[in-house]
Design a protein around this nucleic acid. Structure first.
Length: 614
RNA sequence: GGUCUCGUAGCUCAACUGGAUAGAGCAGCUGCCUUCUAAGCAGCAGGUUUCAGGUUCGAGUCCUGACGGGAUCACCA
């Protein structure tokens, strides 16, 4: 039992014995005392003032007196307005510290929650390399997965790889036409970038073809019949591009044929597809590796895009879905506050929903999970609402524990990222840049000159990635965020490296302490405010972790880590450790070692590694 | 237009289920390296929490309504 629970319990007892009022522990709101008042923890009395018809002063006095006299945990109290501020004794703090230190590796952990969760994240298309948007997705997914594991869930990291469709065929078509049989290796490019370049090339080809077509008589005719009011030719053709692609483009025609061939299992098409996707996967693999994330099992749309139809038919027969006159199948979610959604087209082919229902079922067959988290941008909020309600409607066994970890778009200071305008921030470039920034920053302060080359590079990478990852993950997932490249490589203030630096400072002290924790801290009875602040932080770790897991919110951990690091830096500046009195030294070494462990654990939950020096 | 979502310092972000005088960082200014790593610390300055009502002992937080940004409303994914 930690100090907060102890306060709650004693207050409950007191209310019961002295006022005959029954309350639960959770009813007692215990806060950290605001800096402007005396005390360590504060009990909020207002809720009981009314119920007990006592004024805050008498009520607070009664409770405060009982707590102080009832043992050696509390040394004093004061009441201001409806707040009862309690002062904790040095011996109680020492006890808390001893306990924290003892359990530092497992604090907040749950052994086995009996829950198996599948976390889906990243899920890219295979026609272009990963970019900044994917990075936010990947970091959220990875961190969420780590957090759920920490609270005792069995977690499976997965993706649904979008490896088929017209977009993929575009890259293939462009490669066929302009690639001259080249491979990424020959071109000296990473596979995903190599293929992505053909996707761009395809757009160029199409543009050229379109421009030429615009000079034809047919185009003139189309313009005259379809233009709106006084729309200029330029404006008209700009907005007509999609229609052109579908109706007139020979390149478009050829590409669509390719898609049909693919669906028909044409060997040549399938081979090319396999080869090019293979290149892309090699590239992705490298990016994931550089971000230090791994997956347990991948699902590919080429395998799952036909799934789901039988479930739809089955549930149609069971009366959960209904059929329109034209043969299309729908689910009616209007009594659940949503709309009617189509599940199967009139021609019997599937839509997004069909696949997602099928894939969920497939995953259940494979893993028997009882919970699923989908990390997908907030533009799909409605889709997931509908999907989850549908899965509930057909009573899938995992359907009461589905969560869409919906996150906001990443903007640049210049505005939205747009692939057409070339303002997309490439994932690999970004990683390389933050690491190189960390390198030059480290070389400037010269702390690593005695470290060998290999380890040095490893440290640069940890710091650079720490900066990048922290910058992104500190923002609450559902908020749209601005990504300023300049700020993302910042290593001062509220950043990953600032937190890493706190850890490094502790490690450095611990290295210098020869005689370990031999001394006894029992005689240490004048606990500094800076020390209390750290203890209070440490005691908050379990509830922060629970909250982060419950809300699927890594930013809670990020903010917690910063707070802890900040309080450590202040502590570090205010008190001496190695040349303090024996008992103070023992207390402080115990304290900082615990802080180091919790910092390291917190950051690991965010996918950030700690260097031991920097 | 319907639905969802966000709006906090010049900028980027916090604020546990409603709790005391709304906090950090960056940018700006001032100090601190013969003392355990200055990627640090301390200080100054910066706010009508978009606005208007309501609920209550108490509202950045909950409710209603405006205003502003974004998303979504396909037999696309």
């Amino acid at each position: 039992m930690n100090i907060i629970e102890l306060i709650q319990e004693q207050v409950v007892d007191c209310l019961s014995s002295q006022f005959d009022h029954k309350a639960k522990n959770a009813d007692i709101l215990v806060n950290v005392t605001s800096k402007t008042f005396e005390g360590d923890y504060t009990v909020v009395l207002f809720p009981f003032v009314k119920a007990l018809r006592q004024n805050p002063q008498t009520l607070g006095d009664a409770i405060g007196k009982t707590l102080v006299e009832g043992g050696d945990t509390f040394t004093g109290y004061n009441i201001i307005k409806g707040f009862l501020n309690l002062e904790i004794s040095a011996s109680a703090w020492r006890k808390e510290l001893a306990n924290l230190f003892e359990n530092k590796d497992t604090l907040g952990k749950i052994e086995n929650a009996g829950v198996k969760t599948l976390v889906e994240f990243s899920s890219p298309n295979t026609n272009k390399p990963l970019h900044l948007g994917h990075i936010r997705n990947i970091l959220l997914g990875w961190s969420c997965s780590q957090i759920l594991k920490e609270v005792g869930q069995e977690v499976i990291n997965t993706q649904i790889v979008n490896d088929r469709g017209i977009a993929v065929c575009k890259s293939m078509m462009a490669w066929k036409k302009t690639g001259n049989g080249q491979t990424p290796e020959q071109a000296g490019k990473k596979g995903d970038h190599f293929v992505g370049d053909f996707y761009v090339a395809y757009d160029q080809l199409l543009k050229a073809e379109y421009a030429e077509w615009q000079t034809t008589i047919k185009a003139e005719e189309v313009y005259n019949t379809h233009k709106k009011d006084d729309q200029t030719k330029e404006d008209f053709f700009k907005s007509y591009k999609n229609r052109y692609f579908n109706s007139y483009s020979s390149l478009g025609e050829e590409t669509k044929e390719m898609l049909l061939k693919w669906e028909d299992n044409d060997p040549e098409t399938k081979n090319l597809w396999k080869t090019m996707n293979g290149w892309v996967y090699d590239g992705f693999e490298e990016t994931y590796k550089s971000l230090k994330v791994t997956f347990d099992q991948l699902y590919y749309e080429s395998d799952t895009y036909l799934l789901g139809k039988d479930i739809i038919e089955q549930q149609l027969a069971a009366g959960k879905f209904y059929k329109e006159d034209d043969g299309s199948i729908w689910v009616d979610l209007t009594d659940r506050g949503l709309d009617k959604k189509i599940l199967l087209r009139s021609d019997g082919t599937s839509v997004y929903m069909t696949q997602d229902i099928g894939t969920a079922k497939q995953r259940y067959d494979d893993h028997g999970m009882n919970s699923m988290v989908y990390v997908v941008g907030n533009e799909q909020d409605y889709h997931f609402k509908a999907l989850f309600e549908t899965l509930k409607l057909i009573e899938e066994p995992y359907s009461d524990a589905l969560f869409h970890l919906s996150y906001g778009m990443v903007d640049l200071p210049t505005g939205k990222m747009k692939s057409r305008e070339g303002t997309v921030v490439d994932a690999d470039d970004l990683v390389a840049e933050v690491i190189s920034e960390a390198r030059s920053s480290a070389q400037e302060n010269g702390n690593l000159e005695s470290v060998d080359e290999v380890e040095r590079e490893d440290i640069y990478s940890k710091i650079g990635l720490g900066a990048l990852k922290y910058f992104i993950i500190k923002v609450h997932p559902k908020k749209r965020m601005t990504f300023d490249p300049k700020q993302s490589v910042d290593m001062q203030g509220q950043t990953g490296p600032y937190i890493q630096n706190a850890y490094v400072r502790i490690k450095s002290i611990l290295r210098k302490n020869e005689d370990a924790l031999a001394a006894n801290m029992d005689a240490y009875d004048k606990i500094e405010n800076a020390e209390k602040a750290l203890l209070i932080d440490l005691l908050q770790f379990p509830s922060t972790l629970q909250e982060a897991a419950k809300q699927f919110d890594p930013s809670a951990i990020a903010n917690y880590s910063f707070n802890l690091a900040k309080d450590f830096h202040r502590f570090y500046h205010e008190v001496r450790i190695l040349n303090a009195s024996d008992e103070a030294k023992a207390f402080r070494l115990t304290l900082i070692e615990t802080v180091a462990t919790i910092l390291e654990r917190s950051m690991r939950l965010l996918g950030i590694e700690m260097p031991s020096r920097m």
